[in-house]
Amino acid sequence: MSELQLPERLTHLEASACLTELVARLPAGGPVCVDAAALRDFDSAALATLLALRRRLLQQGRALSLSQVPPRLAELVALYGVGELLPA
């Protein structure tokens, strides 16, 4: 399984550039795990970015999972009801 890392800051201001960077760093084939340990300053755009990355991977028949999810991000995932889409 390949791993990508989220930046420390991921708000609506950084979301588009972050998604572009994550997609550019996607390894060829196989499932992808996104490490969220560095994430400190974020809003719901972080979820939108992760969901957009998931859509890209699904188009390729690949899976996405999360690791080291900060508690506040886990709360947002639960609040928006996307836990099944973004498994930890």
Rank of each mutant, 00 (worst) to 15 (best):
L51I: 08
C33N: 11
L73T: 10
P7A: 07
A88E: 08
A38W: 00
L6Q: 01
L4C: 02
L76Q: 12
A78R: 15
A88I: 01
H12V: 15
A15C: 13
M1H: 13
E21F: 05
G29A: 14
L76A: 10
G81A: 06
S65T: 15
G61N: 06
R54F: 05
E14M: 15
R56L: 03
V32K: 01
L86V: 06
D35P: 02
A15W: 14
P87L: 05
P70T: 03
M1L: 14
P27D: 14
G83F: 06
G83Q: 11
R56Q: 13
E75L: 06
V82N: 07
L53E: 00
E75T: 01
P87V: 07
L64Y: 00
R72S: 11
Q60V: 05
D41H: 15
A63E: 15
L76I: 04
A78G: 08
L47M: 13
L26R: 01
L50F: 03
D41M: 09
R9M: 02
R56I: 05
A46D: 06
E75D: 10
L51N: 06
P7C: 08
L76M: 15
A46Y: 04
G81D: 03
E14N: 14
Q68H: 15
Q68M: 02
R40M: 03
E3K: 12
L47H: 10
Q60G: 05
A52I: 10
R55I: 04
D43W: 00
D35E: 02
P70K: 08
E84P: 02
V32H: 04
E8T: 11
S2T: 08
P71R: 10
L85V: 04
L50M: 11
L22M: 12
L66R: 10
A28F: 10
S65E: 10
D35I: 00
S2Q: 09
L4W: 03
P87W: 07
L85I: 06
A63C: 13
A38F: 00
L6M: 06
T49G: 08
L51C: 04
L19Q: 13
L47C: 13
G29D: 14
V23D: 09
A36M: 08
D35H: 03
A24M: 02
L19C: 13
A45H: 09
L47A: 12
A24V: 04
L57I: 05
R9G: 00
S65F: 02
A17Y: 07
